[in-house]
Simulated scan of single mutants.
Amino acid sequence: MRKVNFKNRDWDIIGNLHFPENFDYKKKYPAIVCVHPGSSVKEQTAGLYAAQLAKNGFIALAFDASFQGDSGGKPRFLEDPATRVEDIRCAIDYLTTLLFVDNDRIGAMGVCAGGGYAANASISEKRIKAIVSVAGTNASRAFREASPIEVLKAVAQQRTAEAGGSEKLINNWIPDSAEDAKKSGLEEMDLLGAIDYYRTPRGQHPNSTNQLLFTSMSNLIMFDAFHLAEYFLTQPLLIIVGDKVGAFGSYRDGFELYNKAASANKKIHVVKGADHYDLYDKPNATNEALEQMVPFFLDNL
């Protein structure tokens, strides 16, 4: 693995480039862009899949989104879907400059919101030849279902306050502990799974700070990751979801994308007994996902 950097506009995006075993600079390899979830960083689940894809013969690039982790850009902790999609395009730009990457064999995979962003990028970015979504979500759908008008009004008020000199408002993505969630009456399976992954030693990373710039919410609410997929998402598509259905909606979103995509070659695989966060790092679930993903990329890149 090698740390790399590339540009999105005038700031640096920092990534980890994973290499196959017995890598040979004189050869050409297929490459996969691995896109992390919201609130995540490259060392977490996207990096796990990148490392495993590299073991199976791919160049795999996991990177921190703009405004987050080791990557640059201001304001910090902004989750801007349009910029997240542009990050993917910039990652592909970078891969095409590497002499050992076959530019005609570049794929994309993403986890959770990263799956939605990878799908959205593929709608217009035809250098992506195949897409895999793991527990992928259309993140804006979840936010649109939770009092969106009131949230948009609150964002408007906050922007006015910040224009007048107030400090930026930064909230937590999720409660910091299961105890905090329970005290607030938020004992939902996916939320507790997120806390267990992000806020405990299981998956915790110091760069995954659980901080979200509140004004991001207007961008999240208005962005539809699957917009126009029925016309322009034509590449081979593999969707992987667990059958333990929680509130974050990856099961529902997976089937929506599957039904909507214009791809002639598309498949949805349901991992039995797995919930959303099992597909982040639990060996039984991730191994089954990889058993589907690796042959899919080998066949389509």
Rank of each mutant, 00 (worst) to 15 (best):
G242F: 04
A178F: 01
A225Q: 12
P236H: 04
M217Q: 12
V151G: 08
A264Q: 13
T137G: 07
V245Y: 00
S263D: 08
N171Q: 08
S66T: 15
K267E: 14
L78A: 14
A54R: 12
I268Y: 10
A31I: 02
D180I: 09
A163K: 12
A135W: 03
L212G: 01
G73A: 09
K282A: 12
A118F: 01
D275E: 11
D278E: 05
D104E: 14
A194G: 14
K7A: 13
V270P: 03
H276I: 11
Q204I: 01
E79A: 09
L191D: 10
Y94C: 08
L213A: 04
A118I: 10
Y117D: 14
I149W: 10
Y277M: 07
F143V: 07
N8E: 10
Q204N: 14
L191G: 06
K260T: 15
K282R: 15
V4F: 13
N207T: 12
D275F: 00
L228P: 00
I174H: 09
V101G: 12
I88H: 03
K260W: 01
T83W: 01
W173T: 01
A154T: 13
N56M: 02
Y280C: 06
D281V: 05
N5D: 13
H36C: 12
Y198F: 15
T45L: 09
V151N: 09
A118W: 04
I221R: 13
R127Y: 05
D93M: 00
F255T: 03
W11F: 15
D275K: 04
G116W: 03
V270Y: 03
N207G: 14
H18Y: 15
V33K: 05
N56D: 14
A121H: 05
M217A: 08
K27V: 01
T96W: 02
K26E: 10
A51W: 01
D70P: 00
L186H: 03
A289G: 10
F296W: 12
L186A: 14
E256A: 08
P75I: 03
Y25S: 13
V33A: 13
W11R: 05
D70W: 01
A108G: 08
G73M: 09
K28R: 13
S184K: 15
G193Q: 06
L17T: 10
L99M: 02
R76M: 04
T83A: 12
A178T: 02
S133E: 11
K74A: 08
S177M: 04
E79L: 12
A121L: 03
N16F: 07
G273Y: 02
E145V: 02
I239P: 06
F297Q: 09
V85N: 02
S218C: 10
V35E: 03
N207M: 10
D299T: 11
H276S: 08
A108K: 06
A229L: 09
A130E: 07
E291W: 01
D12V: 09
L228A: 11
I128S: 06
Q235L: 00
